Amino acid sequence: MSTIGFLGLGIMGKAMAINLVNAGFDVTVWNRNPAKCEDLVAIGAKLGTSPKSVAERCDITIAMVSDPAAALDICNGPEGVVAGIGEGRGYIDMSTVDDDTSSLISNAITQAGGRFLEAPVSGTKKPAEDGTLIILAAGDESLYQDALPAFDVMGKMSPYLGEVGQGANMKLVVNMMMGGMLSIFSEGISLGLKAGLTGEQILDVVNAGAMANPMFKGKGAMFLEENYTTSFPLKHMQKDMRLAVALGDKLDQPMPTAAIANEAFKQALKAGFGDEDIAAVYKTVK
């Protein structure tokens, strides 16, 4: 069984790392705020002092951080992953970044003698806790094969999508569709309530028909309860929407609906809802 390093213990990363420890993996953790490592150390994880120290110690190092800037930051510099990766060890970035950022990280890791896999995830806090994420892997196929036992603990599905960039592209496509759905769902619930329907009536009809899906069921209940407890921070969804729209520009693909949905999330971000759940986009229209 490979030794695993885990960098980044936020809402998602902490749950994923806990599952690896509980499954019996030898796990070394690091976080910019060391206090976030305490719960992992308490259940048997080792504590790393820097991304470099973790990459030096572990067969496979996994990162789960917030955005492209953070993903690049933990790789570069004298205490970064690149400085410690060494010959043949693996680095897996599970953060959601654009394909250009993935390519930069991939090039740096491979030039340092390591193997690289991008593996962003589809899923939020509860799937991370339950080990039912969808892991979108692309890059070094030998590292993918070595990582499958860990992926099987963290997720329910982990397709191999080919060359670096395709995992990032798949994640942006999926989250772009999710953001668009959530934006129109917010407007639909708001319109129905103002027309005199009850929220329960609307959700019952939606959940019984062709539009039924787990997100509408879960987020609809959050709308009605005005409960925006965070499982996927709104600021991160807006980042993903922005990156998806930028990918559309790069590929000359018109995306008018995605662009409008991105504006809805930008409005929610400007209103101060960035650290709340993505469901808080509803607050800007209700």
Rank of each mutant, 00 (worst) to 15 (best):
N207L: 10
F273G: 09
Y91D: 05
A23Q: 00
A268M: 11
Y144Q: 11
A17W: 00
A147Q: 00
A246V: 06
K171Y: 04
K194L: 01
V206E: 04
A42H: 00
V281W: 04
L9I: 02
N31T: 03
A244G: 05
I18M: 10
L47A: 11
F185N: 07
V205D: 03
L47M: 11
M215L: 15
A17I: 02
P78D: 14
A246F: 03
G77W: 09
M1R: 13
K283I: 01
G131M: 03
G179Y: 10
S142G: 08
M1I: 02
M170K: 10
K171H: 01
S2D: 11
L203T: 06
M177L: 15
M64E: 02
G162C: 02
E141N: 12
T132L: 11
G209L: 11
A42Y: 01
N22Y: 08
K194P: 00
K126I: 14
S95Y: 00
K171T: 14
E141V: 07
V81Y: 09
A108P: 05
F6Q: 08
F265A: 15
D240M: 12
N207G: 14
Y160T: 09
R57K: 15
Q238S: 08
I92H: 06
D39G: 03
L251H: 13
P233Y: 07
S142A: 09
A55N: 10
F232W: 06
A195F: 04
E56I: 12
P51M: 00
L9V: 00
S186H: 11
E118D: 01
N33C: 14
L269A: 10
R57S: 14
D59Y: 02
G218F: 15
E129C: 12
G24S: 04
A112H: 06
M64P: 03
F223D: 14
R89S: 15
V174C: 13
P214C: 15
N31G: 08
I184W: 09
E225H: 12
G10P: 01
L148I: 11
F223H: 14
S158E: 01
P34R: 06
G192N: 06
Q267W: 08
I62T: 08
P127A: 12
F273P: 12
A138Q: 11
E226R: 09
E225S: 06
E141W: 00
E79N: 13
L247M: 13
G192T: 00
A55H: 09
K286T: 02
P159N: 05
